[in-house]
Design a protein around this nucleic acid. Sequence first.
DNA 1: TACCTAGACAGGAATGATTCCTACATAGCA
DNA 2: TGCTATGTAGGAATCATTCCTGTCTAGGTA
Lengths: 150, 150
Amino acid sequence: MTLHPQEIEARFRRQAVRVTRQRAAIYAALVETTSHPTAEDLYRMVTRQHPTMSRNTVYYTLGVLRKAGLLQEVNVGHEVARFDGNVTMHHHLVCVQCSRIEDVMDQELDRLEISARQARGFHVLGHRVEFHGYCVSCRAGRREASPSQG
Amino acid sequence: MTLHPQEIEARFRRQAVRVTRQRAAIYAALVETTSHPTAEDLYRMVTRQHPTMSRNTVYYTLGVLRKAGLLQEVNVGHEVARFDGNVTMHHHLVCVQCSRIEDVMDQELDRLEISARQARGFHVLGHRVEFHGYCVSCRAGRREASPSQG
DNA sequence: TACCTAGACAGGAATGATTCCTACATAGCA
DNA sequence: TGCTATGTAGGAATCATTCCTGTCTAGGTA
């Protein structure tokens, strides 16, 4: 999804986030991809247009935008943090081989609940379902390499 | 759950894992708690009885036991790795304030599936549901501090 | 039972994502 | 247009984890 600069600015102002060229560039890069990039990925994407931007700014900005609810952090396994410009409730498919992450929108999964007994006194705010498996390209690789393991 | 040394040894041998005092101590500490400890937590627990054990051995052993299917890594948010001696399928309640993790056993959650369309060609192996909220003690703290925010 | 050797252990160095620090720059308001 | 709180750049620091290397030992064998 490509976003007009005015739309980015509007979203920032709605959340009382100061508008700077760096922030707009980082947010635009994130919203324009569905690949759940890492901070380092975003740094590389953004420094093409803004060669002087520092990693620090990327980390700082990601923190600001997260607190403002303009992005969410997606953490899969014990890997580096990844970011998602889609802040609506959704779930993930994760490839156990290449770490690719794809979004799953499914209202049935959104409605999951647990009983009070199971909740152990927790005040539950939300939930997330993570499906693990092999993505299309890794399945293909495995089929060639070892047919019995797929 | 307290485990007899013989039972630990039996489990190791069943998975062709060499039996050493260090490994038995680490595994026993993990299985005896429900707190999903970090590697550092386990290091502290285990060095009480084995003061010369190195962190390296803890990390190495956790890797060995994970590959053998004797424990699983639980990763919540973008925090340090935590470990769980419960290797049966289960789900988690996570406190967004203090990071406490509690297990949820629920066969309905175990049976979740997604449609082929949603699966995007993934070969799904399993899934995990994570519920986020405030645990009992953090709810209590919040009630005192700011009644309208709970 | 003593010996052998692949694999395990200890401890220190290295790595790498993330955070901290600080001086300079700028968004947004008066 | 000027002021000031906040953002930015860049380098240093942090810290969980991994790597390296020289002993040590579990578990099989003679």
